[in-house]
Design a protein around this nucleic acid. Sequence first.
DNA 1: AAGCTTAATGAGAATGAATCTAGTTTGCGT
DNA 2: ACGCAAACTAGATTCATTCTCATTAAGCTT
Lengths: 148, 148
Amino acid sequence: MTAGAEIDWADHALTTLQEAGHRRGGARTAVVEALAAHDCAVTALDLDDELARRRPRVARASVYRALEQLEQLGLVRRIEVGRGVAGYERVDPTGHHHHHAICRDCGRMVPFEDRSLERAIGKLCEDLDFEVAEHDVVLRGRCQHCSL
Amino acid sequence: MTAGAEIDWADHALTTLQEAGHRRGGARTAVVEALAAHDCAVTALDLDDELARRRPRVARASVYRALEQLEQLGLVRRIEVGRGVAGYERVDPTGHHHHHAICRDCGRMVPFEDRSLERAIGKLCEDLDFEVAEHDVVLRGRCQHCSL
DNA sequence: AAGCTTAATGAGAATGAATCTAGTTTGCGT
DNA sequence: ACGCAAACTAGATTCATTCTCATTAAGCTT
């Protein structure tokens, strides 16, 4: 992976937050930095774990609050990674994105992308009486490792 | 909707349960009947509400247990309908299914189906190093009613 | 039909992710 | 530097879901 992508995203996120009228606080900045370091979805509690070591400590509530605000601004997207557990991952400002195949056995997430899938979704959204803002595709089954 | 679809599904579900070695209990049968009466996803608590009036009362734990077993047997599928809330809907034995557009504002679910979407998913699953058992597509945005 | 084994059930406690509350700190415009 | 609203922390709370365990009843066996 290139070193630039995450830095750019963190920068972009902090700028967007500021433009949206948010002040610059330590906890939220820490959440942005932590998200920037991940390529794929992380749960809020994982982030909380990571940030618990920081001084001053980042509170769990701040993690959730930051994630909610980031989601509202379209900077991160939220996906369900398991029974009632949400994962969050950064949104590339170019609109480029991937989806996930999740293993039922080990919980591993395999990201994938597919142009014709995106095309099909784009087209069907036009025909729908619904103002679609985002879409999510989740495949569930057994990963290569677990099917042996 | 035809009157037959649900009855057939309930029948099929009860038969499948029996073949899987399950005894025939009142609570689970009640859950199957309740699911059969719904065309689209219902939450476990909605089902619990409906069944709370029955005599003898169906316990909440039984609702969840039954849903889990039905899901395991591929008789119902589980989808996330809102922050940490699961919805369940019956699976048509023919494989025929729909997906959902969910309104961010009012929570309304609009079912839709699309052949080219299914085709795209089918094809990409073949290319993936992953044994895909099921897929889920969720569109999020604003429904016709809420965008006015 | 009575007895037996064990799945199924009901009631309520326990869990765990997510949210809320209250009091404190801090960013930032004035 | 001052003051006020936003952001923060810690911990309580909520709410869907899961677990426990005592009880009931399905459906063999005889």
